[in-house]
């Protein structure tokens, strides 16, 4: 069994690496499809001399395969070109914005996970009680209200009317509260819905019925039988949310002027800072693949059946 597990882990990691290579390649192809990079960089008014000089400098006059290999070589060395705006290594620019985005997404997701899973369990266990109904209504509202609208409402109430929290920036923990809550709202609603379904399904299962018939107390059944079974679908959704959070923070970061990667992405697109955009896309893609890998590995830990079934 243990050898089998190791084999499954190895194959999953190998698959994730292949996916990363494919992602990197498609980014290269997309960048070339988006138009002549020289025109993109220099604008349509550039002179032929400037274009030729730039092409030579960037290696754009070489065959496409050679360009691709050079691109891969650069990625392995960790150099993704020099930012057009910052005149620095693009990856360095992106990484300098990463801690703030991580702070925001981690706090938002922790909040979302706690609130969403708790609300989902409550809604599943007490479907007709006040708590259950409140959770159901709350999740619908959370799903329906767009995050920029919620952001503005929160800002109006807590910053402008009550003057408790700042409207933007990243000076102290107080500026983190509103963006984190805004981001958590939609995620927790999604999580709550899936948690409710998963817990409900497990509660209705026959092994729970049998556990009741054996006289196991309800809370024990919930913690030791229902939640371990409901964990698999919850983990799946959580994985998707984490993977999406890096890019999903764009709107919230922009609204609250939170100087993270999302904010950087928006300004870089506006500035046509291609190396930075490319670095962000590669980073976000890798993050997505890695969370999926982590979720996949999590399954084998949570559900013993996935070890012996086909990989």
């Amino acid at each position: 069994m243990r050898r089998n597990t190791r084999k499954i882990f190895a194959s999953k990691i190998a698959r994730a690496l292949v996916t990363v290579v494919l992602m990197v390649t498609s980014v290269f192809v997309l960048m070339r499809c988006a138009g002549d990079p020289v025109t993109v960089l220099l604008g349509p008014d550039a002179t032929a001399d400037m274009r030729a000089a730039y092409s030579g400098e960037l290696g754009l006059d070489r065959p496409i395969l050679a360009q691709y290999l050079a691109y891969l070589h650069n990625i392995v060395r960790g150099s993704l070109g020099v930012s057009y705006v910052y005149r620095q290594d693009a990856l360095g620019v992106v990484l300098s914005h990463l801690p703030l985005t991580l702070t925001l997404t981690c706090s938002a997701l922790t909040l979302a996970a706690l609130a969403g899973v708790a609300a989902g369990i409550a809604a599943a266990v007490f479907p007709s009680s006040f708590i259950g109904r409140a959770c159901t209504v709350g999740t619908v509202v959370g799903l329906c209200v767009p995050s920029f609208f919620l952001a503005i409402v929160l800002m109006l109430v807590f910053s402008i009317q009550l003057n408790w929290l700042p409207t933007g920036g990243a000076e102290s923990w107080r500026s983190l509260v509103l963006p984190a809550v805004t981001m958590a709202a939609a995620s927790s609603a999604v999580l709550a819905r899936y948690t409710r379904v998963a817990v409900r399904e497990s509660l209705d299962s026959r092994y729970v019925l049998a556990a009741f018939a054996r006289g196991i107390p309800f809370w024990r059944i919930l913690i030791h039988h229902v939640l371990p079974n409901a964990a698999v679908p919850i983990l799946t959704i959580l994985g998707l949310l984490i993977g999406g959070a890096v890019t999903g923070s764009t709107v919230v970061e922009t609204v609250f002027s939170w100087p993270g990667i999302g904010n950087l992405f928006v300004t870089s697109v506006g500035n046509r800072d291609i190396p930075v955009v490319q670095a962000i896309v590669l980073l976000a893609g890798t993050a997505m693949i890695m969370t999926n890998l982590a979720v996949d590995l999590g399954y084998t830990w949570l559900d013993p059946r996935s070890k012996s079934s086909e990989t």
Binding site: S205, R206, Y207, A210, H225, P228, N229, L302
Partner: peptide
């Protein structure tokens, strides 16, 4: 069907 009445992940 005893397998349905036993918790699959425990």
């Amino acid at each position: 069907q005893p397998s349905l009445y036993l918790n699959p992940v425990r």
